[in-house]
Design a protein around this nucleic acid. Structure first.
Lengths: 262, 262
DNA sequence: CGGGCCATTGACAGTCCTCAAACCGGGTGG
DNA sequence: CCACCCGGTTTGAGGACTGTCAATGGCCCG
Protein backbone atom coordinates (compact mmCIF):
# COMPACT_ATOMS: atom_id res chain seq x y z
CA UNK A 1 0.00 0.00 0.00
CA UNK A 2 0.96 3.62 0.00
CA UNK A 3 3.82 4.69 2.19
CA UNK A 4 1.77 6.70 4.61
CA UNK A 5 0.88 3.73 6.70
CA UNK A 6 2.84 3.64 9.92
CA UNK A 7 4.16 0.35 11.14
CA UNK A 8 5.04 0.63 14.77
CA UNK A 9 4.69 -2.05 17.37
CA UNK A 10 1.11 -0.94 17.71
CA UNK A 11 0.28 -0.60 14.08
CA UNK A 12 -0.79 -2.91 11.37
CA UNK A 13 -1.22 -2.47 7.70
CA UNK A 14 -4.72 -2.86 6.48
CA UNK A 15 -4.70 -3.90 2.89
CA UNK A 16 -8.36 -3.24 2.44
CA UNK A 17 -8.05 0.46 3.11
CA UNK A 18 -8.08 3.27 0.64
CA UNK A 19 -5.54 6.05 0.23
CA UNK A 20 -6.32 9.76 0.10
CA UNK A 21 -8.04 11.55 -1.39
CA UNK A 22 -10.57 8.74 -1.66
CA UNK A 23 -10.04 8.07 1.99
CA UNK A 24 -11.04 11.63 2.80
CA UNK A 25 -14.12 11.34 0.63
CA UNK A 26 -15.37 8.31 2.49
CA UNK A 27 -14.43 9.68 5.91
CA UNK A 28 -17.33 9.62 8.34
CA UNK A 29 -16.58 13.21 9.23
CA UNK A 30 -18.24 14.01 5.96
CA UNK A 31 -21.44 12.52 7.29
CA UNK A 32 -21.60 15.26 9.91
CA UNK A 33 -23.17 18.58 9.19
CA UNK A 34 -19.99 20.33 10.16
CA UNK A 35 -18.05 19.21 7.12
CA UNK A 36 -20.68 18.15 4.68
CA UNK A 37 -20.25 21.19 2.50
CA UNK A 38 -16.49 21.51 2.55
CA UNK A 39 -15.28 23.15 -0.65
CA UNK A 40 -12.26 22.11 -2.66
CA UNK A 41 -9.87 24.55 -1.02
CA UNK A 42 -10.87 23.24 2.36
CA UNK A 43 -10.57 19.64 1.24
CA UNK A 44 -7.12 20.38 -0.19
CA UNK A 45 -6.05 21.94 3.07
CA UNK A 46 -7.13 18.88 5.02
CA UNK A 47 -5.48 16.49 2.64
CA UNK A 48 -2.32 18.56 2.74
CA UNK A 49 -2.21 18.52 6.49
CA UNK A 50 -2.74 14.80 6.72
CA UNK A 51 0.37 13.29 8.12
CA UNK A 52 -0.01 9.58 8.03
CA UNK A 53 -2.40 6.80 8.56
CA UNK A 54 -2.10 4.90 11.82
CA UNK A 55 -3.62 1.60 12.72
CA UNK A 56 -4.17 0.19 16.18
CA UNK A 57 -5.39 -3.07 17.62
CA UNK A 58 -7.98 -3.62 20.31
CA UNK A 59 -6.49 -2.75 23.66
CA UNK A 60 -3.80 -0.45 22.27
CA UNK A 61 -3.46 2.79 24.14
CA UNK A 62 -3.54 5.63 21.64
CA UNK A 63 -3.08 8.44 24.12
CA UNK A 64 -1.57 7.90 27.54
CA UNK A 65 -3.03 9.66 30.52
CA UNK A 66 -0.88 12.55 31.71
CA UNK A 67 1.41 12.34 28.75
CA UNK A 68 1.86 14.97 26.15
CA UNK A 69 -0.24 14.12 23.13
CA UNK A 70 1.59 14.73 19.91
CA UNK A 71 -1.00 15.48 17.33
CA UNK A 72 -4.62 15.57 16.49
CA UNK A 73 -6.25 12.56 14.86
CA UNK A 74 -9.53 11.62 13.29
CA UNK A 75 -11.01 8.16 13.47
CA UNK A 76 -11.54 6.66 10.06
CA UNK A 77 -12.93 3.33 11.19
CA UNK A 78 -13.30 1.45 14.46
CA UNK A 79 -14.17 2.28 18.05
CA UNK A 80 -12.16 3.71 20.93
CA UNK A 81 -12.89 5.28 24.28
CA UNK A 82 -11.60 8.07 26.48
CA UNK A 83 -10.98 7.36 30.16
CA UNK A 84 -9.53 8.70 33.38
CA UNK A 85 -8.17 6.71 36.30
CA UNK A 86 -7.61 7.34 39.99
CA UNK A 87 -4.34 6.47 41.64
CA UNK A 88 -5.78 3.28 43.13
CA UNK A 89 -6.88 1.98 39.77
CA UNK A 90 -10.53 2.92 39.65
CA UNK A 91 -11.33 3.80 36.08
CA UNK A 92 -14.01 5.94 34.50
CA UNK A 93 -14.83 5.70 30.82
CA UNK A 94 -15.78 9.22 29.74
CA UNK A 95 -17.24 8.47 26.34
CA UNK A 96 -16.92 6.22 23.35
CA UNK A 97 -15.31 7.39 20.13
CA UNK A 98 -16.79 6.34 16.82
CA UNK A 99 -15.78 6.87 13.20
CA UNK A 100 -15.64 10.57 12.43
CA UNK A 101 -14.72 11.54 15.97
CA UNK A 102 -11.66 13.61 16.71
CA UNK A 103 -8.98 12.35 19.06
CA UNK A 104 -6.73 14.80 20.81
CA UNK A 105 -8.60 18.06 20.38
CA UNK A 106 -8.56 18.89 24.09
CA UNK A 107 -4.86 18.11 24.20
CA UNK A 108 -4.12 20.80 21.65
CA UNK A 109 -4.78 23.28 24.41
CA UNK A 110 -2.74 21.88 27.25
CA UNK A 111 0.64 20.42 27.94
CA UNK A 112 -0.53 16.98 28.85
CA UNK A 113 -3.55 14.90 28.13
CA UNK A 114 -5.84 14.69 31.12
CA UNK A 115 -7.36 11.47 29.88
CA UNK A 116 -6.28 8.35 28.07
CA UNK A 117 -7.63 6.93 24.83
CA UNK A 118 -7.75 3.22 24.11
CA UNK A 119 -8.80 1.29 21.02
CA UNK A 120 -11.81 -1.01 21.31
CA UNK A 121 -11.42 -2.59 17.90
CA UNK A 122 -8.98 -2.57 15.08
CA UNK A 123 -8.77 1.13 14.50
CA UNK A 124 -7.71 3.19 11.55
CA UNK A 125 -6.94 6.86 12.09
CA UNK A 126 -5.57 9.83 10.23
CA UNK A 127 -3.12 12.04 12.08
CA UNK A 128 -2.31 15.62 11.25
CA UNK A 129 0.59 18.03 11.44
CA UNK A 130 1.17 19.59 14.84
CA UNK A 131 0.13 23.03 13.67
CA UNK A 132 -2.91 21.94 11.73
CA UNK A 133 -5.43 23.28 14.17
CA UNK A 134 -3.78 26.67 14.46
CA UNK A 135 -3.37 27.00 10.71
CA UNK A 136 -6.93 25.93 10.17
CA UNK A 137 -8.19 28.68 12.44
CA UNK A 138 -6.13 31.21 10.53
CA UNK A 139 -6.90 30.05 7.01
CA UNK A 140 -10.17 28.18 6.97
CA UNK A 141 -12.62 29.62 9.43
CA UNK A 142 -15.47 27.41 8.26
CA UNK A 143 -13.46 24.32 9.09
CA UNK A 144 -12.44 25.84 12.41
CA UNK A 145 -16.06 26.53 13.15
CA UNK A 146 -16.81 22.92 12.32
CA UNK A 147 -14.16 21.69 14.71
CA UNK A 148 -15.62 23.78 17.49
CA UNK A 149 -18.99 22.38 16.54
CA UNK A 150 -17.60 18.89 17.03
CA UNK A 151 -16.18 19.86 20.39
CA UNK A 152 -19.51 21.28 21.53
CA UNK A 153 -21.25 18.14 20.39
CA UNK A 154 -18.87 15.96 22.36
CA UNK A 155 -19.43 18.08 25.44
CA UNK A 156 -23.20 17.72 25.10
CA UNK A 157 -22.69 14.01 24.93
CA UNK A 158 -20.63 13.94 28.11
CA UNK A 159 -23.28 16.08 29.79
CA UNK A 160 -25.76 13.37 29.01
CA UNK A 161 -23.49 10.68 30.40
CA UNK A 162 -22.98 12.73 33.54
CA UNK A 163 -26.73 12.97 33.97
CA UNK A 164 -26.89 9.19 33.66
CA UNK A 165 -24.17 8.43 36.14
CA UNK A 166 -25.40 11.01 38.61
CA UNK A 167 -29.12 10.52 38.51
CA UNK A 168 -30.21 7.41 36.68
CA UNK A 169 -30.55 3.95 38.22
CA UNK A 170 -28.39 1.10 36.97
CA UNK A 171 -30.92 -0.24 34.47
CA UNK A 172 -31.77 3.26 33.31
CA UNK A 173 -28.10 3.98 32.72
CA UNK A 174 -27.61 0.89 30.63
CA UNK A 175 -30.73 1.58 28.65
CA UNK A 176 -29.65 5.14 27.98
CA UNK A 177 -26.19 4.00 26.92
CA UNK A 178 -27.52 1.40 24.53
CA UNK A 179 -29.95 3.89 23.02
CA UNK A 180 -27.20 6.44 22.70
CA UNK A 181 -24.91 4.05 20.87
CA UNK A 182 -27.75 2.90 18.66
CA UNK A 183 -28.58 6.45 17.64
CA UNK A 184 -25.01 7.43 16.93
CA UNK A 185 -24.42 4.33 14.85
CA UNK A 186 -27.64 4.95 12.99
CA UNK A 187 -26.55 8.48 12.23
CA UNK A 188 -23.33 7.07 10.80
CA UNK A 189 -25.36 4.61 8.73
CA UNK A 190 -23.70 1.73 10.50
CA UNK A 191 -26.94 0.01 11.52
CA UNK A 192 -28.02 -2.64 9.04
CA UNK A 193 -31.52 -3.15 7.75
CA UNK A 194 -32.23 -5.73 10.46
CA UNK A 195 -31.35 -3.25 13.16
CA UNK A 196 -28.02 -4.87 14.04
CA UNK A 197 -24.84 -2.92 14.64
CA UNK A 198 -21.33 -3.68 15.84
CA UNK A 199 -20.95 -3.05 19.55
CA UNK A 200 -17.51 -4.15 20.70
CA UNK A 201 -17.83 -3.18 24.35
CA UNK A 202 -17.67 -5.71 27.17
CA UNK A 203 -19.57 -5.59 30.43
CA UNK A 204 -16.44 -4.18 32.02
CA UNK A 205 -16.53 -1.20 29.65
CA UNK A 206 -20.19 -0.63 30.41
CA UNK A 207 -19.51 -0.76 34.12
CA UNK A 208 -16.65 1.70 33.83
CA UNK A 209 -18.65 4.05 31.65
CA UNK A 210 -21.66 4.06 33.93
CA UNK A 211 -19.98 4.12 37.31
CA UNK A 212 -21.17 0.65 38.26
CA UNK A 213 -19.49 -2.52 39.44
CA UNK A 214 -19.06 -5.35 37.00
CA UNK A 215 -21.34 -7.67 38.96
CA UNK A 216 -24.15 -5.21 39.25
CA UNK A 217 -23.84 -4.32 35.59
CA UNK A 218 -24.26 -7.96 34.72
CA UNK A 219 -27.42 -8.27 36.81
CA UNK A 220 -28.99 -5.11 35.42
CA UNK A 221 -28.13 -6.22 31.92
CA UNK A 222 -29.81 -9.55 32.47
CA UNK A 223 -32.90 -7.72 33.68
CA UNK A 224 -33.15 -5.70 30.48
CA UNK A 225 -32.61 -8.79 28.40
CA UNK A 226 -35.35 -10.63 30.25
CA UNK A 227 -37.65 -7.79 29.28
CA UNK A 228 -36.72 -8.44 25.68
CA UNK A 229 -35.34 -4.97 25.13
CA UNK A 230 -32.16 -5.94 23.39
CA UNK A 231 -30.37 -8.87 21.81
CA UNK A 232 -26.68 -9.48 21.53
CA UNK A 233 -25.07 -11.89 19.16
CA UNK A 234 -21.42 -12.28 18.43
CA UNK A 235 -20.37 -8.71 19.12
CA UNK A 236 -23.48 -7.26 17.53
CA UNK A 237 -26.30 -5.48 19.28
CA UNK A 238 -29.91 -4.92 18.36
CA UNK A 239 -32.36 -2.70 20.20
CA UNK A 240 -35.62 -4.56 20.05
CA UNK A 241 -37.98 -1.83 21.15
CA UNK A 242 -36.49 1.66 21.15
CA UNK A 243 -39.69 3.29 22.38
CA UNK A 244 -39.99 1.03 25.39
CA UNK A 245 -36.30 1.45 26.15
CA UNK A 246 -36.69 5.21 25.97
CA UNK A 247 -39.35 5.09 28.63
CA UNK A 248 -37.41 2.78 30.90
CA UNK A 249 -34.21 4.76 30.50
CA UNK A 250 -35.84 8.17 30.74
CA UNK A 251 -33.87 9.00 27.65
CA UNK A 252 -35.74 10.50 24.76
CA UNK A 253 -34.42 11.38 21.37
CA UNK A 254 -33.41 14.94 20.84
CA UNK A 255 -33.66 16.86 17.58
CA UNK A 256 -30.55 16.43 15.48
CA UNK A 257 -27.87 19.02 15.87
CA UNK A 258 -27.57 21.52 13.08
CA UNK A 259 -25.10 24.03 11.81
CA UNK A 260 -27.36 27.07 11.91
CA UNK A 261 -24.89 29.49 10.42
CA UNK A 262 -23.56 27.58 7.46
CA UNK B 1 -26.22 54.41 34.41
CA UNK B 2 -25.58 53.82 30.76
CA UNK B 3 -28.42 52.61 28.63
CA UNK B 4 -27.05 49.17 27.91
CA UNK B 5 -28.41 47.71 31.09
CA UNK B 6 -31.47 45.58 30.50
CA UNK B 7 -34.33 45.82 32.90
CA UNK B 8 -36.56 42.85 32.49
CA UNK B 9 -38.44 41.05 35.16
CA UNK B 10 -35.28 39.13 35.81
CA UNK B 11 -32.86 41.98 35.64
CA UNK B 12 -31.69 44.58 38.02
CA UNK B 13 -29.54 47.59 37.61
CA UNK B 14 -26.33 47.44 39.46
CA UNK B 15 -25.15 50.91 40.18
CA UNK B 16 -21.71 49.80 41.22
CA UNK B 17 -20.81 48.40 37.84
CA UNK B 18 -18.62 49.91 35.20
CA UNK B 19 -19.44 50.54 31.58
CA UNK B 20 -17.36 49.43 28.60
CA UNK B 21 -14.61 49.64 27.68
CA UNK B 22 -13.51 49.64 31.30
CA UNK B 23 -15.82 46.75 31.88
CA UNK B 24 -14.03 44.74 29.21
CA UNK B 25 -10.67 45.60 30.71
CA UNK B 26 -11.64 44.25 34.09
CA UNK B 27 -13.41 41.20 32.66
CA UNK B 28 -12.17 37.98 34.19
CA UNK B 29 -11.82 36.52 30.72
CA UNK B 30 -8.70 38.60 30.53
CA UNK B 31 -7.27 36.59 33.40
CA UNK B 32 -7.29 33.51 31.20
CA UNK B 33 -4.44 32.72 28.91
CA UNK B 34 -6.79 32.60 25.99
CA UNK B 35 -7.41 36.32 25.90
CA UNK B 36 -4.58 37.77 27.89
CA UNK B 37 -2.78 39.10 24.86
CA UNK B 38 -5.71 40.41 22.88
CA UNK B 39 -4.64 43.30 20.70
CA UNK B 40 -6.58 46.50 20.13
CA UNK B 41 -8.33 45.32 17.00
CA UNK B 42 -9.55 42.27 18.81
CA UNK B 43 -10.66 44.28 21.81
CA UNK B 44 -12.52 46.66 19.50
CA UNK B 45 -14.26 43.78 17.83
CA UNK B 46 -15.43 42.39 21.16
CA UNK B 47 -16.62 45.76 22.38
CA UNK B 48 -18.41 46.34 19.12
CA UNK B 49 -20.24 43.04 19.34
CA UNK B 50 -21.32 43.58 22.89
CA UNK B 51 -25.05 43.89 22.90
CA UNK B 52 -26.12 44.75 26.38
CA UNK B 53 -25.47 44.10 29.98
CA UNK B 54 -27.89 41.81 31.74
CA UNK B 55 -28.29 41.27 35.43
CA UNK B 56 -29.92 38.36 37.17
CA UNK B 57 -30.80 37.43 40.69
CA UNK B 58 -30.11 34.21 42.55
CA UNK B 59 -32.50 31.55 41.32
CA UNK B 60 -33.19 33.22 37.97
CA UNK B 61 -33.09 30.85 35.06
CA UNK B 62 -30.83 32.33 32.40
CA UNK B 63 -31.26 29.56 29.86
CA UNK B 64 -34.22 27.23 29.89
CA UNK B 65 -33.71 23.56 29.19
CA UNK B 66 -34.90 22.56 25.71
CA UNK B 67 -35.53 26.13 24.69
CA UNK B 68 -33.73 27.95 21.97
CA UNK B 69 -30.99 30.06 23.49
CA UNK B 70 -30.82 33.45 21.90
CA UNK B 71 -27.26 34.60 22.22
CA UNK B 72 -23.92 33.96 23.70
CA UNK B 73 -22.98 35.58 27.01
CA UNK B 74 -19.98 36.00 29.22
CA UNK B 75 -20.15 36.17 32.98
CA UNK B 76 -18.75 39.40 34.32
CA UNK B 77 -19.40 38.71 38.00
CA UNK B 78 -21.28 36.14 40.03
CA UNK B 79 -21.86 32.40 39.92
CA UNK B 80 -24.25 30.22 37.94
CA UNK B 81 -24.57 26.55 37.12
CA UNK B 82 -25.54 24.37 34.19
CA UNK B 83 -27.97 21.52 34.79
CA UNK B 84 -30.10 18.84 33.18
CA UNK B 85 -33.26 17.27 34.55
CA UNK B 86 -35.14 14.04 34.00
CA UNK B 87 -38.87 14.01 33.39
CA UNK B 88 -39.57 12.97 36.97
CA UNK B 89 -37.64 15.88 38.42
CA UNK B 90 -34.28 14.38 39.22
CA UNK B 91 -31.69 17.04 38.54
CA UNK B 92 -27.99 16.88 37.73
CA UNK B 93 -25.77 19.92 38.06
CA UNK B 94 -23.21 19.61 35.27
CA UNK B 95 -20.76 22.27 36.36
CA UNK B 96 -20.53 25.64 38.00
CA UNK B 97 -19.94 28.81 36.02
CA UNK B 98 -17.66 31.48 37.41
CA UNK B 99 -16.66 34.95 36.25
CA UNK B 100 -15.03 34.75 32.83
CA UNK B 101 -17.00 31.67 31.81
CA UNK B 102 -19.03 31.63 28.63
CA UNK B 103 -22.74 30.87 28.70
CA UNK B 104 -24.43 29.51 25.63
CA UNK B 105 -21.50 28.36 23.53
CA UNK B 106 -22.88 24.87 23.03
CA UNK B 107 -26.21 26.33 22.06
CA UNK B 108 -24.66 28.21 19.16
CA UNK B 109 -24.45 24.87 17.44
CA UNK B 110 -27.89 23.47 17.94
CA UNK B 111 -31.50 24.49 17.76
CA UNK B 112 -32.26 24.12 21.43
CA UNK B 113 -30.26 24.16 24.59
CA UNK B 114 -29.82 20.69 26.00
CA UNK B 115 -29.24 22.06 29.48
CA UNK B 116 -30.47 24.88 31.66
CA UNK B 117 -28.46 27.62 33.30
CA UNK B 118 -29.43 29.16 36.61
CA UNK B 119 -27.93 32.02 38.60
CA UNK B 120 -26.46 31.21 42.00
CA UNK B 121 -25.86 34.81 43.02
CA UNK B 122 -26.57 38.24 41.69
CA UNK B 123 -25.10 37.87 38.28
CA UNK B 124 -23.84 40.37 35.78
CA UNK B 125 -23.34 39.24 32.20
CA UNK B 126 -22.49 40.67 28.81
CA UNK B 127 -24.46 39.37 25.88
CA UNK B 128 -23.40 39.49 22.25
CA UNK B 129 -24.90 39.80 18.83
CA UNK B 130 -26.31 36.57 17.40
CA UNK B 131 -23.63 36.34 14.74
CA UNK B 132 -20.72 37.23 16.97
CA UNK B 133 -19.25 33.75 17.07
CA UNK B 134 -19.44 33.26 13.34
CA UNK B 135 -17.96 36.66 12.61
CA UNK B 136 -15.24 36.07 15.13
CA UNK B 137 -14.19 32.87 13.40
CA UNK B 138 -14.06 34.73 10.12
CA UNK B 139 -12.28 37.86 11.26
CA UNK B 140 -10.33 37.14 14.41
CA UNK B 141 -8.91 33.67 14.38
CA UNK B 142 -6.93 34.20 17.55
CA UNK B 143 -10.09 34.99 19.46
CA UNK B 144 -11.84 32.05 17.86
CA UNK B 145 -8.98 29.85 18.91
CA UNK B 146 -9.37 31.23 22.41
CA UNK B 147 -13.05 30.40 22.45
CA UNK B 148 -12.33 26.85 21.43
CA UNK B 149 -9.71 26.77 24.15
CA UNK B 150 -12.38 27.76 26.66
CA UNK B 151 -14.66 25.04 25.36
CA UNK B 152 -11.95 22.41 25.66
CA UNK B 153 -11.21 23.58 29.19
CA UNK B 154 -14.84 23.27 30.17
CA UNK B 155 -14.98 19.79 28.74
CA UNK B 156 -11.92 18.77 30.74
CA UNK B 157 -13.64 20.06 33.81
CA UNK B 158 -16.76 18.03 33.15
CA UNK B 159 -14.57 15.00 32.54
CA UNK B 160 -13.22 15.45 36.03
CA UNK B 161 -16.71 15.75 37.49
CA UNK B 162 -17.76 12.62 35.65
CA UNK B 163 -14.82 10.78 37.15
CA UNK B 164 -15.98 11.97 40.57
CA UNK B 165 -19.57 10.97 40.19
CA UNK B 166 -18.71 7.66 38.61
CA UNK B 167 -15.83 6.48 40.71
CA UNK B 168 -15.29 8.50 43.86
CA UNK B 169 -17.01 7.90 47.21
CA UNK B 170 -19.26 10.56 48.69
CA UNK B 171 -16.59 12.19 50.83
CA UNK B 172 -14.07 11.99 48.02
CA UNK B 173 -16.50 13.70 45.70
CA UNK B 174 -17.13 16.55 48.06
CA UNK B 175 -13.45 16.97 48.73
CA UNK B 176 -12.69 17.04 45.03
CA UNK B 177 -15.45 19.58 44.40
CA UNK B 178 -14.26 21.89 47.16
CA UNK B 179 -10.69 21.68 45.93
CA UNK B 180 -11.81 22.32 42.41
CA UNK B 181 -13.75 25.43 43.36
CA UNK B 182 -10.87 26.63 45.51
CA UNK B 183 -8.42 26.30 42.65
CA UNK B 184 -10.63 28.01 40.15
CA UNK B 185 -11.34 30.90 42.48
CA UNK B 186 -7.65 31.20 43.26
CA UNK B 187 -6.88 31.36 39.58
CA UNK B 188 -9.37 34.21 39.27
CA UNK B 189 -7.72 35.92 42.23
CA UNK B 190 -10.95 35.72 44.17
CA UNK B 191 -9.42 34.04 47.23
CA UNK B 192 -8.42 36.52 49.90
CA UNK B 193 -5.19 36.49 51.84
CA UNK B 194 -6.80 34.48 54.64
CA UNK B 195 -7.81 31.76 52.23
CA UNK B 196 -11.50 32.65 52.21
CA UNK B 197 -13.62 32.79 49.09
CA UNK B 198 -17.30 33.26 48.29
CA UNK B 199 -19.04 29.93 47.82
CA UNK B 200 -22.76 30.48 47.32
CA UNK B 201 -23.77 26.85 46.85
CA UNK B 202 -26.12 25.06 49.22
CA UNK B 203 -25.99 21.42 50.20
CA UNK B 204 -28.72 20.80 47.65
CA UNK B 205 -26.46 22.11 44.88
CA UNK B 206 -23.61 19.93 46.08
CA UNK B 207 -25.88 16.89 46.15
CA UNK B 208 -27.15 17.58 42.65
CA UNK B 209 -23.68 18.18 41.31
CA UNK B 210 -22.24 15.01 42.80
CA UNK B 211 -25.11 12.62 42.23
CA UNK B 212 -25.84 12.22 45.93
CA UNK B 213 -28.93 12.60 48.07
CA UNK B 214 -29.26 15.67 50.21
CA UNK B 215 -29.16 13.74 53.46
CA UNK B 216 -26.10 11.77 52.58
CA UNK B 217 -24.37 14.91 51.36
CA UNK B 218 -24.99 16.47 54.74
CA UNK B 219 -23.47 13.52 56.58
CA UNK B 220 -20.41 13.34 54.37
CA UNK B 221 -19.95 17.07 54.71
CA UNK B 222 -20.08 16.82 58.48
CA UNK B 223 -17.44 14.11 58.32
CA UNK B 224 -15.04 16.32 56.42
CA UNK B 225 -15.71 19.18 58.78
CA UNK B 226 -15.01 16.99 61.77
CA UNK B 227 -11.63 16.25 60.21
CA UNK B 228 -11.01 19.97 60.13
CA UNK B 229 -10.58 20.07 56.38
CA UNK B 230 -12.76 23.06 55.68
CA UNK B 231 -14.58 25.90 57.40
CA UNK B 232 -17.68 27.69 56.27
CA UNK B 233 -18.84 31.02 57.51
CA UNK B 234 -21.60 33.15 56.14
CA UNK B 235 -21.43 31.98 52.56
CA UNK B 236 -17.65 31.87 52.54
CA UNK B 237 -15.50 28.80 52.36
CA UNK B 238 -11.94 28.12 53.42
CA UNK B 239 -9.94 24.99 52.67
CA UNK B 240 -7.91 24.39 55.79
CA UNK B 241 -5.49 21.82 54.51
CA UNK B 242 -5.41 21.47 50.74
CA UNK B 243 -2.75 18.76 50.81
CA UNK B 244 -4.72 16.56 53.17
CA UNK B 245 -7.87 17.15 51.20
CA UNK B 246 -6.06 16.18 48.01
CA UNK B 247 -5.14 12.85 49.50
CA UNK B 248 -8.62 12.16 50.82
CA UNK B 249 -10.27 13.20 47.59
CA UNK B 250 -7.78 11.48 45.31
CA UNK B 251 -7.68 14.75 43.45
CA UNK B 252 -4.30 16.22 42.76
CA UNK B 253 -3.51 19.50 41.15
CA UNK B 254 -2.71 19.40 37.51
CA UNK B 255 -0.34 21.71 35.72
CA UNK B 256 -2.09 24.86 34.56
CA UNK B 257 -3.47 24.87 31.07
CA UNK B 258 -1.51 26.84 28.56
CA UNK B 259 -1.99 28.27 25.13
CA UNK B 260 0.92 26.53 23.45
CA UNK B 261 0.51 28.15 20.08
CA UNK B 262 0.06 31.79 20.97
C1' DC C 1 -46.04 35.21 64.78
C1' DG C 2 -46.27 32.38 60.62
C1' DG C 3 -43.92 30.90 56.52
C1' DG C 4 -40.04 29.66 53.68
C1' DC C 5 -35.38 28.16 53.01
C1' DC C 6 -31.71 25.65 54.65
C1' DA C 7 -29.14 22.64 57.78
C1' DT C 8 -29.37 18.70 60.82
C1' DT C 9 -30.55 14.18 62.83
C1' DG C 10 -32.77 9.49 63.41
C1' DA C 11 -34.55 5.19 61.67
C1' DC C 12 -34.92 2.07 58.16
C1' DA C 13 -34.78 0.23 53.51
C1' DG C 14 -32.50 -0.86 49.39
C1' DT C 15 -29.50 -0.29 45.67
C1' DC C 16 -25.20 -1.37 44.73
C1' DC C 17 -20.51 -3.26 45.99
C1' DT C 18 -17.08 -6.85 47.38
C1' DC C 19 -15.52 -11.40 47.74
C1' DA C 20 -15.65 -15.88 45.74
C1' DA C 21 -16.40 -19.37 42.59
C1' DA C 22 -18.05 -21.56 38.54
C1' DC C 23 -18.85 -21.63 33.64
C1' DC C 24 -17.96 -21.01 28.66
C1' DG C 25 -15.68 -20.59 24.26
C1' DG C 26 -11.38 -19.99 22.01
C1' DG C 27 -6.50 -20.35 21.55
C1' DT C 28 -2.11 -22.83 22.60
C1' DG C 29 1.05 -26.35 23.30
C1' DG C 30 2.37 -31.00 24.51
C1' DC D 1 -6.69 -34.90 20.93
C1' DC D 2 -6.80 -33.04 25.30
C1' DA D 3 -5.11 -30.33 29.21
C1' DC D 4 -4.42 -25.69 30.30
C1' DC D 5 -4.89 -20.86 30.28
C1' DC D 6 -7.32 -16.65 29.32
C1' DG D 7 -10.79 -13.11 28.84
C1' DG D 8 -15.31 -12.60 29.52
C1' DT D 9 -19.89 -13.91 31.57
C1' DT D 10 -22.77 -15.65 35.25
C1' DT D 11 -24.37 -16.66 39.98
C1' DG D 12 -24.41 -16.68 45.20
C1' DA D 13 -23.94 -14.58 49.74
C1' DG D 14 -23.15 -10.91 52.77
C1' DG D 15 -22.29 -6.27 53.84
C1' DA D 16 -21.61 -1.40 53.05
C1' DC D 17 -22.66 2.79 51.16
C1' DT D 18 -26.27 5.61 49.95
C1' DG D 19 -31.27 6.72 49.52
C1' DT D 20 -35.99 7.61 51.45
C1' DC D 21 -39.13 9.16 54.87
C1' DA D 22 -39.91 11.99 58.67
C1' DA D 23 -39.21 15.49 61.97
C1' DT D 24 -36.74 19.23 64.29
C1' DG D 25 -34.18 23.64 64.78
C1' DG D 26 -32.11 28.01 63.18
C1' DC D 27 -32.50 32.09 60.54
C1' DC D 28 -34.56 35.69 57.93
C1' DC D 29 -38.50 38.28 56.60
C1' DG D 30 -43.07 40.02 55.79
Amino acid sequence: MSNDVVNTKNSITDAGEVAPPDRCKSCRLRALDAFRNADTAEAKFIEGQRRERECFERGDVIVHEHERAKFIRTIYSGWAFRFKTLSDGRRQVLNFLLPGDIVGLQEQFSDASLHGVEALTSLSTCSFQPNTLWDMFGQHSRLAFGVTWIAAREEALIDENLLSVGRRSATERIGALYLHLYRRMRQLRLVDSQGWFECPITQTHIADALGLSLVHTQRSLRQLKKLGLYTRDNGKLRIENPRALERIAEYYEQPPRQMPLI
